[in-house]
Design a protein around this nucleic acid. Structure first.
Ligand SMILES: [Zn+2]
Ligand SMILES: [Zn+2]
Ligand SMILES: [Zn+2]
Ligand SMILES: [Zn+2]
Lengths: 131, 131
DNA sequence: ATTCTTAATGTTATAGCATTACAGTTTTTT
DNA sequence: AAAAAACTGTAATGCTATAACATTAAGAAT
């Protein structure tokens, strides 16, 4: 998507909260953590998140209605990314798999479907939580 | 998941609405369509949807917060299913791809992640809407 | 520097999605 | 018949997201 400029004050606050978090956060949880810095409304969070997502710095986890900082260096490059989400501890592993991407691209190509964005989210239990 | 018994009154009403629909419906849209039959509260819809999902008769589209009747004969079998969702007309194509499943199984196997459920949702534009 | 233009911010209100808690009923099993 | 399990009804509440509008800040053009 668009290339990333210098972050504004709100964008920077939201991004920092997500980077520090060990688990995905909802927009309202982020809001709670930046209230002390003068942000008061959900919309301020959602606007910052929209920008950060556009720059590949943050991902939205559709099955959680939550957001997480990108775990990779430069995420707008690999464009199809998958998440393994632990339902016990909420740890999230981000990865990309070229072969999965190839197969899905293949399918949508056959159907002449124009793909914009793909969400792959695996819910389960991580190794640590499985003991 | 569990094998499907005879549907109760509420489950049957909700399922029929979804089967008749041409696009995914939110729980509240379903509610609107069954109010005339005496259902009044969202929870009655969500309870029916939970059961129907467990039996593989209905899928939840995470990126839409909406639900759709399964397009396949016996969906609890193939357990990893993907959706291509048109953002213009909301048409949804359900498909499964053994190779995608194999690659993702491979990844979670390496990480010793115990997968329960996988959501794959491709958002974009269908052939008809692309002209 | 001043105007023009675009992007970001602040605020309130509202819309949309989902669950908790509790009480009652029906169905199935023993 | 009694006990257990599944399903239903209802009200209240909580969480997630956007619409609408006014204001301010930042960048480009003259
Ligand atoms: Zn990423
Ligand atoms: Zn875990
Ligand atoms: Zn299905
Ligand atoms: Zn379409």
């Amino acid at each position: 998507m668009n290339t990333q400029p210098r972050l504004t004050r709100n964008q920077d606050m939201v991004f920092r909260v997500l980077v520090d978090a060990k688990t995905p956060l909802s927009a309202y949880t982020i809001l709670d953590q930046v209230r002390e810095f003068g942000i008061r409304a959900p919309l301020q969070i959602y606007r910052a998140l929209d920008k950060l997502q556009g720059w590949g710095m943050v991902h939205r986890l559709e099955s959680l209605n939550a957001f997480i900082a990108c775990a990779r260096a430069d995420c707008q490059r690999h464009e199809m990314v998958a998440f393994a989400i632990c339902d016990k501890c909420r740890h999230v592993s981000e990865f990309s798999d070229a072969q999965v991407k190839a197969h899905l691209d293949n399918w949508v190509g056959d159907k002449e479907f124009l793909a914009n964005q793909t969400a792959i989210e695996i819910r389960g239990t991580c190794r640590a939580c499985a003991r």
